[in-house]
Amino acid sequence: MDVQNKYASLDDEALVRSAQKGNKNAFEELVARHRDKVYGRLMIMIKNENDALDLSQEVWIKAWKRLKQFHGDAAFCTWITRIAINVGVDHIRKQKRKKYESIEDHIEESGSIERLMPIEIVNPAQGLEREELRARIDKALEQLSPEHRSVVILHEFEGLEYKEIAKMLKCSMGTIMSRLFYARKKLAHLLAGLKKERLQ
């Protein structure tokens, strides 16, 4: 049995315990298992393949250094995803351009345009293949600002509460509610537009 196969048969818990003792082969298996999840989170957040790849690497190096702090209170996958989100949020903060801090940011933050859009009730079951739907959601997410995307990811994909998101993103609960409302509204509008295109 080669090294990869030996570790592939172990569960995350056993691999973490072994990696905590300094076993890099066990850690490699953890990386192999969860690298797509980490990369996917970062990719959705920052929408840049090279940055997402570099940040994924940063996430795993951080995880290796902090592995002894992991006590198994949550699943390893949840733990590593949290690190990825924090790294992604830091990156977004650093990358925030001046233009976002001025008028455009204000418009987007307040979501004034999207709030005036007509109500769009999208029926996900209508006609689209799952993969196609996912691709369209991904495309629609791309049109949100990184800050709004982060809120959507943390709420819809990670299942965090408003309070937790506010703490993680260091902003008020009101801002989180506003961003989430704006993001949902815009996504509903974009997806409804795509559906109409398809029906024509």
Partner: peptide, 23 residues
């Protein structure tokens, strides 16, 4: 209804993205 549909749509269809380089 609008918000619920958007939320359901996202929660059930999280995009799956694969890393573009080998293990």
């Amino acid at each position: 209804e609008e918000l619920k549909c958007a939320a359901d749509l996202l929660q059930n269809n999280e995009p799956e993205i694969k890393m573009p380089i080998s293990r």
